[in-house]
Amino acid sequence: MDERDLIRCAQLGDRDAFAGLVSSHEKKLLALCWNMLGEREEARDAAQEALLQAFENLSRFDAGRSFVKWLLGIGAKRCLDRLRRKRTFLRIFKVHAGEWLGGGEPRPEAVAENESTGRLLLKLPPRERAAISLAVFDDFSAREIAATLGCAENTARVHLFNARLKLKKEVADGL
């Protein structure tokens, strides 16, 4: 049974077909989420949300497109949503940390974004991180990145270019 048959069966509501369909792509999805979020558990949560959303919206999937790219696009959007929520939470937390922690000073490690992994990708802004992850790890073109991130193709190119420059600088600084 090839991928197209699995998609058709899954579109008719067959959960087993959906499981068969995503089983070959879930590692890619998880890797993308991990690269964007930097934490295993959060990446797994985001990837599972993406799978659920994909299952719910499978009837709208255009069979002419690549399924894996469609799935990864959903995953990237879920990660961007999470990063946006996280930023908002951290902003609020920084303001109220004193009250919430009983008058003590907020501990830097409690409010800092997860840098313990030391991965330089996490130092990029979310959209640049998404663009470079999709382009380098999943072979998305600038046009596909633009469609996923909801921006112009030129903007996607700029995100990619900036990300490459910043990473090069970070790597050079780290040496």
Binding site: C9, D14, A17, G20
Partner: peptide, 18 residues
């Protein structure tokens, strides 16, 4: 990522393809 119930099995019972 999928729950164990869904598993990695290929579909046993499937609807007629469109």
């Amino acid at each position: 990522l999928l729950p164990p119930a869904a598993g990695r099995r290929l579909p046993r019972r499937r609807a007629i393809p469109f």
